[in-house]
């Protein structure tokens, strides 16, 4: 593709990205806002592909647009059972009195100033010679990292600490969701066409997750993309109205939720005992250890994202009965 064509493509892509972001934020219809946000995420994934970031493009499409969108849509559904359009409460909208209009303009000016400052900082940073010490350090040490995909090498070897803490963030978030209340009601049983499609889709999604996990060592992919794909299988199962969506019960579920952080820590501590630095893999073992950690991380990520979609701790029958009783009491009040 020659330069002019590429410039036209960039222009169209950026125009649709800004347009979708604007449209998603300008409306007060929550459902419309969420759907436009999902479209925004998908176009963004194309932009990541254009900027030669295929790992990020996969994650954006699967997590940023897909699962975030599913979570947000489920939240819209919970807030407005029965009605398809949820408008924000009009008397709380900032478009009524004169003071509100002034405030709106002030905020807009402030945000424009922020954009200007960011742009100035960016142009300043870009005009100096690029610092290539870190990229060079990464490519020089890639051979010793156990994988050949530089992004996976950074995530699970050079900056493994970051990823360990990221899994801890996921675990904390799901514990927070657990403590906030019960699961949301399930969905109506799906029609035969959707149900039939899902029967084909779920095995394909599981297979894709396994492929993404394996291929992450030398090509775009990895635990995050694989975990999100696996969670998507559970999401479509739930959308067909099934109550069993592949999540195990009780104790096993807790083990899986903690597996990502647990296996990561175990590997790190074992290496410490063997006299190596924390998470400093021996080069001969690095590939196998990374695959082990990524497998555990994939299961944890999938369980976490799926639990977030379900909206809480899956109920045993006893808890279910208690919840039903409470719901009856609430409706009587």
């Amino acid at each position: 593709m020659n330069t002019t064509n590429l410039l036209v493509f960039d222009g169209l892509l950026l125009f649709s990205i800004v347009g979708l972001a604007w449209a998603s934020l300008a409306t007060t219809d929550e459902r419309r806002s969420v759907i436009l946000f999902m479209a925004f995420g998908l176009v963004l994934a194309v932009a990541w592909g254009r900027l030669l970031a295929p790992d990020v493009a996969l994650a954006e499409a699967a997590i940023g647009a897909g699962l975030s969108g599913a979570l947000l849509l489920a939240a819209v559904r919970k807030q407005s059972p029965g009605s398809s359009h949820t408008h924000a409460n009009p008397d709380r909208n900032y478009s009524e009195s004169g003071a509100k209009v002034v405030l709106q303009w002030l905020v807009t000016l402030l945000c424009a100033a922020l954009a200007g400052t960011l742009a100035w900082a960016l142009l300043h940073a870009l005009s100096s010679a690029p610092h290539d010490t870190l990229p060079r350090a990464i490519s020089d040490n890639l051979v010793a990292s156990g994988v050949s995909n530089p992004v996976t090498a950074v995530l699970l070897n050079f900056r493994a600490y970051d990823t360990l803490l990221e899994l801890a963030v996921l675990l904390t978030a799901v514990l927070g969701i657990f403590s906030l209340g019960q699961t949301t009601p399930g969905y109506q049983p799906a029609g035969p066409v959707f149900d039939g499609l899902v029967r084909w889709l779920v095995p394909v999604l599981i297979l894709t997750a396994g492929y993404l996990l394996w291929v992450g060592a030398h090509a775009p992919g990895g635990a995050f993309q694989a975990g999100a794909t696996l969670a998507a299988a559970g999401v479509v199962l739930r959308l067909t109205g099934r109550s069993r969506i592949g999540l195990p019960d009780g104790f096993v579920l807790r083990i899986i939720m903690a597996a990502g952080v647990g296996v990561f820590l175990l590997v790190g501590l074992t290496l410490l005992l063997l006299g190596r630095p924390f998470l400093g893999y021996p080069p001969a073992w690095a590939g196998a250890l990374i695959l082990l950690i990524e497998t555990a991380a994939m299961l944890s990520i999938a369980a976490t994202l799926l639990l977030a979609f379900v909206g809480g701790q899956p109920q045993s029958t006893a808890v279910n009965a208690a919840a039903n009783r409470q719901r009856e009491e609430n409706s009587r009040c």
Binding site: D55, A75, P135, V174, L305, A308
Partner: peptide, 29 residues
Amino acid sequence: PPDPLPHALVLTGIVVAVSATALALALAR
């Protein structure tokens, strides 16, 4: 080849963003 370090940062960021979103939605609910 692009610099892989910001790519890894963004991947981490995407996952943290979705978990924060899930927690925020549970709080809102």
